[in-house]
């Protein structure tokens, strides 16, 4: 929000927002998901863009709301909201054409682009383009970069063994890059990857891309 404001945007944070409804939707509980999602639709009455700092929430609102509300009284409103949804890094590059000046110390960073950002929102390269502007950031690439980290919401709970194997491989790949910091545009992936690194003891720190961009470019 600070970053957007610094770029001259007026940022509105609707206080009544709760959740996009994705957990229930992916769990198969569509009525419950619709109930929660419907509560979000009224929060964006004006035709402003809706910027979502998490690929999977953005994907839910942009691509699944139209299905979820098809044939209901909310249909038109849901389609209108969906049309205005942007994933943060996509918004920063495509709409704002954000130019960044790095003020931070040199650091090696690995980027994990979330599956929803990559495949649903189609912004596979946006975050890397932003990081590439930061002179002090050495961007390193992990093997099997485009592979899922194994979070998948309820998947991590319902299929814990497979999820553990996937996050195990993902953290191993990230570790091999020698990165000091791992970033992503999705809180779910970060919770998964970061939680695994912490449990393993040593390992790169994790932080959300918005935080990283802000911290490295803000005047102190």
């Amino acid at each position: 929000m600070r970053l957007l404001q610094r770029e001259g945007l007026r940022v509105i944070f609707p206080r009544n927002q709760t959740c996009c409804g994705q957990p229930a939707y992916n769990g198969g509980y569509r009525d419950e998901a619709r109930r929660v999602a419907a509560a979000q639709l009224d929060l964006f009455p004006q035709s402003y863009p809706i910027v979502v700092p998490s690929g999977s929430c953005a994907g839910m609102m942009k691509h699944h709301y139209p299905d979820l509300f098809a044939g209901t009284p909310w249909q038109v409103q849901a389609n209108d909201v969906a049309d205005r949804v942007w994933e943060l890094t996509g918004f920063l590059t495509e709409v704002l054409d954000l130019q960044l000046k790095d003020l931070g110390e040199p650091v090696r960073v690995a980027m994990h682009t979330s599956c929803s950002a990559r495949r649903e929102m189609g912004v596979a390269n946006a975050a890397e383009a932003l990081l590439g502007q930061l002179q002090g950031v050495e961007l390193v690439e992990q093997d099997h970069k485009s592979e899922c980290c194994g979070f998948g919401g309820t998947f991590a709970v319902k299929q814990p063994e497979i999820s553990a194997a996937m996050v195990g491989d993902k953290t191993e790949s990230l570790r091999r890059t020698g990165a000091e910091l791992v970033t992503s545009q999705d809180c779910g992936c970060l919770m998964n990857i970061g939680g695994a690194f912490e449990k393993q003891g040593d390992g790169p720190k994790t932080c959300h891309i918005a935080e990283l961009l802000w911290e490295r470019t803000r005047e102190r």
């Binding site: 309820t154 998947f155 299929q159």
Partner: peptide
Amino acid sequence: AEASTLCGACGE
């Protein structure tokens, strides 16, 4: 159907 992260690699 639950044993998937819905990562989308298949559909792609």
